[in-house]
């Protein structure tokens, strides 16, 4: 897990930004600009973008791995990334043994939103994702507040590891939340993510009751945790709060997952996905999406 470097007194908050995507159909309703923040406090085996987990260790291993010579510098300092030469081939993150990427940028919220500005006519809003965006809560709040001022309301895509009930600036600035419930049983959650889920489940109840939950997601990985229990209990919380949140059941797929991890994981079949979707609806989830 990485920390934020506080700026000098009075300076704008800076964030560590993993990536900015100007056009996404899969990060909330409609078309959205997505700001991915660097750093995550979970260690999920099936993580699809493990390069967003950690801060750069300044080892320089990625520099020689780049076939386009888009990276320069040396060990002991952050690699300089020449975006104009980068072909997004992924060689740098494949060479990184620290769960990081040389493409992470330190930015102000204004700068991140400026990059989305040309695409604003196409966007219904922004989604701030990660990594885990709540780890940079001041920067996240700035993004949400400034985004809203520009006519780009923001959804927060989170693993729920920070208690949202004690982050009022975030909850009042966000248009809504998308929350992962990775497993219901705490021991299974720890085995899956190396972290407890007690705060996640508190957040689930809090956001559902508050009416700001847009979507809950569970990645379905057969054999990794009790799928039925997770889907049943999560749906029951939504139903009890009369939440309109959509419950999205995501098929685990090996793309982007570190090969040594992927070998141990299996993909669900259609029958299983359909059974779990039916279970969620039977428990009272307002809507279910299988993807």
């Amino acid at each position: 897990m990485m920390g934020l470097v506080p700026g000098p007194e009075g300076a704008a908050v800076r964030g560590e930004v993993a990536r900015i995507l100007p056009f996404s159909a899969v990060d909330g309703p409609g078309n959205r600009g997505v700001v991915f923040l660097q750093g995550c406090d979970f260690g999920c085996g099936y993580c699809h973008n493990p390069e967003t987990r950690m801060a750069c260790a300044l080892c320089g291993a990625c520099i020689g791995a780049c076939p386009e010579s888009a990276l320069s510098g040396g060990p002991g300092s952050r690699p300089a990334w020449d975006r104009s030469r980068c072909r997004d081939c992924g060689s740098c993150v494949a060479a990184c043994s620290h769960g990081s990427s040389p493409k992470v940028r330190s930015m102000e919220a204004r700068e991140a939103l400026d990059e989305l500005e040309p695409y604003r006519p196409f966007l219904r809003g922004i989604t701030v994702s990660g990594g885990e965006c709540l780890l940079q809560s001041d920067f996240l709040a700035e993004l949400l507040e400034q985004g809203r001022a520009r006519g780009l309301p923001g959804l927060v895509d989170t693993n729920g590891s920070r208690p949202l009930a004690s982050l009022p600036r975030i909850t009042s600035a966000a248009e809504g939340f998308m929350l992962d419930v990775k497993a219901w049983n705490e021991a299974e959650h720890i085995a899956l993510t190396a972290s407890s889920n007690s705060t996640v489940l508190q957040n689930l109840g809090f956001l559902a009751r508050q009416g700001s939950l847009f979507e809950v997601r569970t990645v379905i990985v057969p054999g990794s945790f009790d799928l039925e229990e997770t889907v049943r209990e999560t749906s029951a919380v939504l139903a009890a709060a009369r939440s309109m949140a959509r419950y999205r059941l995501i098929r685990y797929r090996p793309w982007g997952v570190r090969p040594e991890r992927a070998a141990a994981l299996s993909e669900p079949d259609e029958d299983l996905m359909a059974r779990l979707a039916a279970l969620a609806l039977a428990q009272g989830a307002a809507s279910v999406l299988v993807s």
Binding site: F23, A25, G30, N31, F122, R124, S291
Partner: peptide, 20 residues
């Protein structure tokens, strides 16, 4: 084909395209 899950994305693209 996955675009079917979010037809709103197409409408948003159209709105922006026409505004431009």
């Amino acid at each position: 084909p996955t675009a079917r899950a979010n037809p709103g994305q197409i409408v948003d693209a159209v709105k922006g395209f026409f505004a431009l």
